[in-house]
């Protein structure tokens, strides 16, 4: 295995493009090293992105959103008060990934690129309307986060493509987001179901919403019907009941060692309701 420390994304792309065998990009390494250890993936070329200027930065965008470097750890996200104030759901989702030790290394970009349908941060990013900047042999482009994962362990990134930053839109007034997951223990498990809700209020009425579910389909999915169920409502009991129903019918889970399909479907509804209530309370300024 060859270890590279490029000083720019362009150089990283060049190394990747010229590599013949298996290539992996390394930021936090919390997935790459586990695969390496298990013998599941032993890259021929490992390209460490942490020496590229700017990858450790969390920066405000001119539009009022946030640009998050690819090597920013979960712990650093959690310590960024202004980001956490704007997007508590995104930050809390990332903070659920792994242990405190894993938080010291794991990144949003890595969580996204691992392609897991159960990745905690991804539903929150999708609900937030986050976008990624991609650089590759064909040049640079932007895409919505929900376009990145294409199946378990698979992404829309081509050979040599790499994400250079994740951008969160401006929060705006009357907004709130939240993420929760269900796991058997209190910590340290992979989500059996995850749900993120991002909404905007005018007065008590929801004017915009995005709802995303994790671990109930081959990829994290945006559920527009779930958003429609609560838009133009005050999240009253009828709206919540409709949301629960829609979330459950949108879920297409499998049964595996972490939960049965029936259980996941059930919990998708329970979480959608709980998370929507929390996001709503945050938008009203009633919850942190």
């Amino acid at each position: 295995m060859h270890y590279h420390t490029p000083a720019s994304f362009e150089e990283a792309v060049r190394i990747a493009a010229s590599a013949g065998g298996v290539t992996r990009f390394l930021a936090g390494g919390t997935d790459v090293l586990v695969q390496l250890r298990a013998g599941a993936v032993t890259p021929d070329d490992l390209i460490d992105l942490k020496h590229i200027p700017g990858v450790h930065d969390i920066a405000a965008t001119p539009q009022g959103g946030w640009r998050i470097g690819v090597a920013v750890s979960g712990a650093e996200l959690g310590e960024h008060a202004a980001l956490k104030r704007d997007w508590p759901g995104v930050v809390e989702a990332m903070e659920l990934v792994g242990s405190t030790q894993v938080q010291g290394r794991a990144t949003l970009t890595g969580n996204l690129c691992n392609g897991s349908p159960a990745a905690d941060s991804v539903p929150a990013l999708v609900a937030a309307g986050a976008r990624v900047a991609v650089t590759g042999p064909q040049g640079s482009r932007e895409m919505a986060v929900e376009q990145v994962p294409t199946g378990p362990g698979k992404t829309a990134l081509g050979p040599g493509d790499l994400i250079t930053a994740i951008t969160l839109p401006p929060r705006g007034a009357g907004g709130g987001d939240a993420y929760q997951r269900f796991i058997p223990r209190t910590e340290m498990d992979i989500a059996v179901v995850g749900c993120a809700v991002n909404l905007t209020l005018e007065g008590d009425v929801i004017t915009q919403a995005r709802v995303a579910l994790g671990a109930v389909a081959p990829t994290v999915m945006l559920v527009p019907e779930a958003a429609e169920a609560i838009i133009s409502t005050t999240l009253d009991s009828d709206a919540l009941e409709a949301l629960v129903k829609v979330a459950r019918s949108a879920a297409r889970p499998i049964s595996d060692k972490r939960g049965t399909a029936e259980f996941r479907t059930d919990i998708a509804g329970v979480l959608a309701r709980r998370v929507a209530e929390l996001a709503y309370a945050r938008a009203k300024g009633r919850a942190k």
């Binding site: 058997p184 223990r185 910590e187 340290m188 498990d189 992979i190 060692k257 972490r258």
Partner: peptide, 29 residues
């Protein structure tokens, strides 16, 4: 009682050979 179990697949292989999915109690449990 609550979460630990050996989980074998149809193929007879152990599916949870790690502390991630062989779930022993953690401090906050």
């Amino acid at each position: 009682a609550l979460n630990e179990a050996y989980i074998y697949g149809e193929d007879g292989r152990l599916q949870n050979a790690g502390f991630l999915d062989y779930r022993i109690p953690v401090a906050c449990d």
